[in-house]
Amino acid sequence: MRQHRAIAFDGVAYGMGELSAAFDFRRQSGTVTAILGPSGAGKSTLLNLAAGFLTPASGRIILDGRDVTGLAPSERGISMVFQDNNLFAHLDIRTNIGLGLDPALKLDRAAWTQVDKALERVGLAGFGKRMPATLSGGERQRVALARAFARRRPLLLLDEPFDGLGPGLAADMLGLMLEIRAEVGATVLMVTHDPDEARAASDQILFIAKGRIAADAPADGFFERRDLPDLQAYLGSGPV
């Protein structure tokens, strides 16, 4: 894939006063960016702005070369995976993935084959008719990844998707996510609070503090930096 800007936040501002947030950054296509920062710093606000769940007060959001600032979430070319409740609990697994291909669920045979392929891809072949409640937490997240895989959107937004899975399972899921990203060729923004996860998966870091981007840097060597007091506070007192 040709290297071009997949994401650009041009002077994006949201909210007022204490809770205000302002973001300005850009990312090349195919990169994986980990978004880190203390809770309440505005990590989810950034993701929600990119997804279109929040509308900025000023500034522009460019995704894949298009100004999407005024577009509805579904028109932005993104897939999203949350920490929880990614699946409609009363719909079976196939339907949950199928809705990702067509929101009215008007799918032809080829599309349903695509759904089954996606399930196969995440190692859940044959799970299509089961209900979300009969799956483990990790399996449900894999279904969410399968849906993102089937949708093949250029941008993948992850909101602490592997939180609460336990370290081993989370690492497996992270690997799966990276494979899927590579196959789809998507650009990833991933909110996490786990520095290890960021180190393992991302090539760039956005460190958010008090609604601002405190650091925008390559992942390599980021956690060893000593010039960021907010980062020190976030990581806790490391070796002095």
């Binding site: 997804a51 279109g52 769940f53 509805a72 979430p73 579904s74 028109e75 993104i78 897939s79 999203m80 949350f82 929880d84 409740n85 990614n86 409609f88 809705l99 990702g100 929101p103 009215a104 669920l105």
Partner: peptide, 15 residues
């Protein structure tokens, strides 16, 4: 998350 997912997938009012 249901409403966010619905928005993300572009489900219409009827669907």
């Amino acid at each position: 998350e249901y409403w966010k997912t619905a928005a993300n997938l572009g489900m219409s009012g009827l669907s």
